[in-house]
Amino acid sequence: MAKALKILVVDDDVDVAESLADILEFDGHDVALAHSGQEAVRHLEERAFDIAFLDVVMPEMNGVDCLCKINELRPETKVFMVTGYSVDQLLNQAADQGAMGVLFKPVAATRMREILRTCA
């Protein structure tokens, strides 16, 4: 079992966020859930995270805006963007803002484990 990480999962789709969190928690990580950009910011204001999985398309504050906020609050957090379909402009902006990578939905658990192994 790899080192336990503090992970923030941000997705406006509750089931997606929870199903991802379930696997991460099963693997022994410390997982926090947020269903909007604002909620994610609140979590980051409270404590630091090693890794954040950020849904790109969300109402009000989208993933890229959230990434900018994370960069301000917790620049050490490694951020991965998660998207259902390609919004090239947003993905390019995210890359410019220092996102570590992009995961396409549906995210395979094996792929996520691979990423966490490299980040641990």
Binding site: D13, D15, V16, S19, Y85, F104, K105, P106
Partner: peptide, 9 residues
């Protein structure tokens, strides 16, 4: 893709 992701996970 979202429900598919949730189901898959």
């Amino acid at each position: 893709r979202n429900p598919l992701g949730a189901i898959r996970n």
